[in-house]
């Protein structure tokens, strides 16, 4: 078992790897990231490393900037006017804020699942097929059918919808819609999947299904999940990063953060003293 410890908090700081694995591949690496919404300094000097093929949870009280930071990783913040990001974020060794980087390609490589299930108001099939089609990943109908089936299977939705692929995706239940959104994200075969509170609009049973799914997906994908629920973070993630007031307070293995946090604020949050 690997263990990541963040000794100091405020500066974010690199993650120290210990344990048998020793050399963990780092998928996403952020150094001194600041985000401004106009005058507002939303993220202050966050540095974090996300290991490949694992689940990292971002936790923290509302408005702490965890979603904002998540949206920096696929440059979704570009779409918000007045938002400025400084610092360095690397996907494999590539600076994603490099002027030469193609945002469309980045977003194909870094998929995203949103808080509220947002399937396109098209058929289930079209929802999943859209990504591969626009990126030119498929050649021919059979190919597309295969990708759609494979993605829906990976999202644990195939059995429920295989007989009604032509029906609108918006007609599914909330939990199914969210899994459809996950299927849509993995259809373009991303390397990283960002999940912004994917279960906050779901009932406990649907939440359990999505959590199971996240656990399976981590074998192939790097997943970063923002969650309000500490239980969820504890259940699904291997790494946890705790944000507070735009600062990354502490990061480390989930087990470590939940049992033996270094920082008093983490301790207070985990034990429910605020947040």
């Amino acid at each position: 078992m690997e263990q990541l410890v963040a000794p100091t908090s405020k500066m974010g700081v690199d993650v120290r790897h210990t344990g048998e694995a020793g050399t963990t591949e780092i998928k996403v690496s952020a150094q001194n990231v600041d985000v401004f919404y106009g005058e507002k300094h939303a993220i202050k000097g966050v540095s974090v490393n996300v290991p490949a093929r694992s689940v990292m949870a971002f936790i923290g009280p509302s408005g702490c900037g965890k979603s904002t930071f998540l949206r920096c990783i696929n440059r979704m913040n570009d779409t918000i006017e007045g938002c400025k990001v400084t610092g360095n974020i690397r996907l494999d060794d590539r600076d994603i804020y490099d002027a030469n980087l193609d945002v469309v390609e980045l977003r194909a490589r870094v998929g995203m699942v949103f808080q509220k299930p947002n399937p396109f108001p098209k058929s289930i099939f079209e929802n999943v097929a859209y990504g591969p089609r626009i990126h030119g990943l498929v050649h021919g109908k059979a190919d597309l059918d295969a990708i759609v089936e494979q993605s829906l299977r990976k999202a644990a939705l195939w059995e429920e919808v295989k007989d009604r692929l032509k029906e609108p995706g918006t007609g599914l239940s909330g939990g199914q819609q969210q899994r459809l959104c996950i299927a849509r994200a993995i259809a373009v075969n991303p390397e990283v999947i960002l999940m912004d509170e994917p279960c906050s609009a779901l009932d406990p049973i649907a939440t359990a299904r999505v959590e199971e799914l996240i656990d399976e997906l981590r074998q192939n994908y790097t997943i970063i999940i923002v969650t309000h629920s500490m239980q969820q973070a504890a259940r699904v993630s291997q790494q946890t990063a705790f944000f507070h007031l735009g600062i990354l307070v502490e990061t480390g293995s989930t087990e470590f953060i939940f049992t033996n946090p270094h920082d008093q604020r983490t301790q207070d949050y985990i034990t429910g003293r605020f947040g």
């Binding site: 696929n74 979704m76 469309v104 949103f114 399937p119 396109f120 849509r184 994200a185």
Partner: peptide, 9 residues
Amino acid sequence: EAAYGIGAS
């Protein structure tokens, strides 16, 4: 967001 999220231009 959904469209941007899967890399639509």
